[in-house]
Design a protein around this nucleic acid. Structure first.
Lengths: 329, 329
DNA sequence: ATTATTTTCGCAAACGATTGCGGCTTTTTC
DNA sequence: GAAAAAGCCGCAATCGTTTGCGAAAATAAT
């Protein structure tokens, strides 16, 4: 079953293709009578403009690339959810590609984006990719790039981030308010700049109060977080609160707590940085500082629209975190 | 910075566009010398064929639509992960659209797929969408459709599913083997055919042993599952095992257990149908029957490739589940 | 040397939609 | 009634790639 084209409509009505095209676009040159006829026939024939042809002519695919480390991740999922909502409104589709935190795959993906002539790209750097040369290539062919979450230091790109420092401080404040005196803080991969930022803001904040004991640990996975937690809680001086830098760490900590039969908040307080999904899995629900992928997506798309409209100067925007009380602290 | 085209290369080398095109495709008509020159220039000019033009001519976008209820779901995420891996190998990209379990949005998406002239579509029905007329429209324009997970009854489509009956039976067997006598089984939305299939297989299996008390409950959300569990465990005859039809239910049940301070497996056994992510969040890890979205994705893509190669007869394929012991039973 | 055969390449027409420009009809204006 | 002005519409080029067909050039056969 062949698709209807302008040509087909033109043949049936015995008018020219251009007239059909203009009629459908409500061009003033075309008489009302002709428009009527064309529209009706288009309707019954279920005409849909062939996007490939439109794209070719307009040199615009109306597709936005989204590169993330992994799709199996709540935070990025909610980013995508938000971006897709907005994209749809603006007539764009998303082309999601995963880097798997592998710089080589990341480069491959960028190449694919160029080949596909996407209109723009949202990108979250894999690991500590410092060489953003491949991203410059996109710029050269006029494909705007908006980084989010894991962004490069390069100030020539637009970057949308969680205000990591604020988030860490918010958590620190909450811990102090609750009068916690022996805090275990678990952070992720210490090589990552996101870890460094959160770590610095967090520890700096405790400088003001020397009476609080702060133990910092690093865990690269959920199970590592579990081990470290278990280990800490087997010592004499058990922490009275745990700070988790991420969901991954939170789940590890909670698993350890279940094993050790530590119950919240009596035996120990817990606070995490999270988008909110995992904290709600537990009883009591975990108190967390919201680092919302969803809000990030909304903000990033807003910025992207500006870029698409020709605003080239790089901008750095932040989504501000907020504290959500669960009952674990 | 303009993109390089065949025309540009042709102009520089002062030969025709067709020659350039053929040279790059290693066409026998072109002399080795010419090929050499063309290839080299193409290399230095970083030539990439314009996909929009290629698509227009070939009427093939090399894009596969994937429609799922929600991207914020482990099961579908792993389906996508698998599909993307395979798609990339085969030179395809994915266009992921979410229906949000809303039939209207589902229809919108299908329209978008048609407009975008995707090469094929993977689809998971929203809720109990029974009217698959919109999918027939895709068939009419020769876009193959492969359903997965939530599939229609319509036998004229290819369908790839988890062998739900087998999975339910596997769980039932495990419960019986452990000598459980008072089982609480919580299922999802009773309107869904997936629920019906799992429910029937599960309950049928217990017909053989009348001495076992089986209580069936339904929960449409995690919090409903939590409520029902809490309620059941406040009665005199507490269940000695809980069966969870899905991750959503499992998380609700576990939350209730945390509240009631019920510890596994001493106080109660738990078994779930899951893809394995959530079961590993708890201590002890939950014993589950694996219903892998990843495997489903692999199998679905395999089938899709056949469809893309012209195999039109509908086929129904199943991925067979397996029991993974956690320690919760 | 002439014809037959290859080798090597260019012309032009697609794919489907868009649009500047110009032409043919009507209608308006003086 | 003739000229100017609208009103309507079609021609043809364009986006970049692919490909059947035919033509020129080079080589082989007679």
């Amino acid at each position: 079953m062949a698709n209807t084209t302008l040509k087909k409509i033109a043949q049936v009505l015995d008018i020219s293709i251009s007239t059909v095209s203009r009629a459908l676009k409500n061009h003033p040159d075309i008489s009302a009578a002709t428009k009527q006829k064309v529209m009706e026939l288009a309707e019954t024939l279920d005409y849909e403009p062939n996007e490939m042809a439109v794209n070719l002519r307009s040199k615009n695919t109306k597709v936005i690339g989204v590169m993330i480390p992994s799709i199996t991740n709540n935070f990025y999922d909610s980013f995508i959810a938000a971006a897709e909502e907005e994209a749809r409104k603006a007539g764009y589709s998303l082309m999601i590609l995963q880097s798997g935190d592998d710089p080589a795959a990341e480069k491959e993906n960028l190449k694919l984006y160029r080949k596909s002539r996407v209109s723009a790209v949202f990108a979250c750097l894999s690991h500590e990719t410092t060489d953003v040369a491949s991203y410059y290539k996109l710029k050269e062919v006029d494909i705007p790039v908006v980084f989010f979450d894991k962004v490069p230091d390069d100030h020539s790109f637009s970057r949308i981030c969680i205000a990591d420092e604020d988030a860490a401080v918010l958590a620190a404040k909450a811990l102090i308010e609750k009068g916690k005196k022996n805090i275990l803080a678990i952070f992720g991969n210490s090589q990552l700049s996101i870890t460094k930022r959160r770590l610095k803001a967090f520890t700096d904040f405790f400088e003001q109060d020397k009476k609080i004991k702060l133990t910092v640990e690093y865990a690269r996975s959920s199970s590592q977080a579990e081990e470290k937690t278990t280990h800490q809680f087997q010592s004499k001086e058990k922490p009275d609160a745990v700070f988790c830098m991420s969901d991954e760490i939170l789940t590890g900590v909670m698993k350890s707590f279940q094993k050790l039969k530590i119950s919240l908040p009596e035996n120990c307080g817990v606070i995490a940085l999270s988008d909110g999904f995992f904290p709600k899995l537990y009883y009591p629900e975990i108190t967390y500082v919201e680092t919302s992928g969803y809000q990030l997506g909304k903000l990033a798309f807003e910025r992207m629209l500006q870029c698409l409209n020709g605003d080239k100067d790089p901008k750095e925007l932040f989504v501000t975190p907020s504290l959500v009380n669960g009952g674990s602290l």
